[in-house]
Structure formats: structure tokens, C-alpha cells
Amino acid sequence: MAKAKGKPENFGNQPSKELTEQLNFRVTKEMKQEVKAKDDPPEFCRQAIQLEFRLGYAKRPSTAELIRDLAK
């Protein structure tokens, strides 16, 4: 099976939304191993990020805010 080469039509992506940007972030060794074990690691990461946005991740308090509230 041919590996997807970064073309939006290969990713089950909406045709109007081209995948033109890259995102890099640090993870633990264990997290990397778990993601690499998935059938399609890039698509798994895209779906996980999209799910977090749908669940309102941006509206959650930051760790600093939680610590400040606990200290009260």
C-alpha cells in the first residue's frame, strides 16, 4: 500500500481545507511509541487535535490558573 505523500486527498480531509502547514511539538518517549504504533500516525494526531478543539480545549483553564485557584 502506497504511503500518503502529503496530498490532502489522501487524508480524508475536506477538499476545501488543504494541509499546507506543519506542527511540531515535544512528547514523552512513551507517547511517541504509542503514536507510532497506530496504523496511520499523522491522521491519528490530526483527529486527536480536532477532537480537543471540538471539546473546547481552548476554554479549559491553564495549569497555572488551576494552581492559583487551588492556592486560594
Rank of each mutant, 00 (worst) to 15 (best):
M1H: 05
A2F: 05
A4M: 11
A4S: 14
K5H: 14
G6I: 02
G6H: 04
K7H: 13
K7V: 14
P8M: 06
P8I: 07
E9V: 06
N10T: 09
N10R: 05
F11R: 14
G12W: 12
G12D: 15
N13E: 14
Q14C: 06
S16P: 01
K17M: 08
K17H: 11
E18P: 04
L19S: 05
L19P: 01
T20F: 01
Q22C: 04
L23D: 10
N24C: 10
F25C: 03
F25I: 04
F25R: 05
F25W: 12
R26A: 03
R26L: 08
R26F: 03
R26M: 10
V27D: 00
V27Q: 00
V27L: 09
T28Q: 09
K29W: 06
E30K: 04
E30W: 02
M31S: 05
M31C: 13
K32E: 10
K32V: 03
Q33S: 14
E34P: 01
E34N: 07
E34G: 03
E34R: 12
E34F: 05
V35S: 00
V35K: 02
K36H: 07
K36Q: 15
K36P: 03
K36Y: 07
A37P: 01
D39H: 03
D40Y: 05
D40T: 05
P42T: 13
P42D: 13
E43W: 12
F44K: 00
F44Y: 07
F44H: 01
C45T: 09
Q47I: 04
Q47G: 01
Q47E: 14
A48L: 00
A48I: 00
A48E: 00
I49G: 02
I49T: 04
I49R: 01
Q50E: 14
L51I: 01
L51D: 11
E52N: 07
F53W: 11
F53K: 09
F53A: 10
R54A: 07
R54V: 03
R54C: 02
L55I: 02
L55C: 11
L55S: 10
G56Q: 08
Y57I: 09
Y57C: 06
A58Q: 15
A58V: 11
A58L: 15
R60L: 15
P61S: 09
P61H: 09
S62G: 11
A64L: 06
E65D: 13
E65P: 03
E65F: 07
L66F: 04
I67V: 15
I67H: 08
R68F: 12
R68N: 15
R68W: 09
D69S: 08
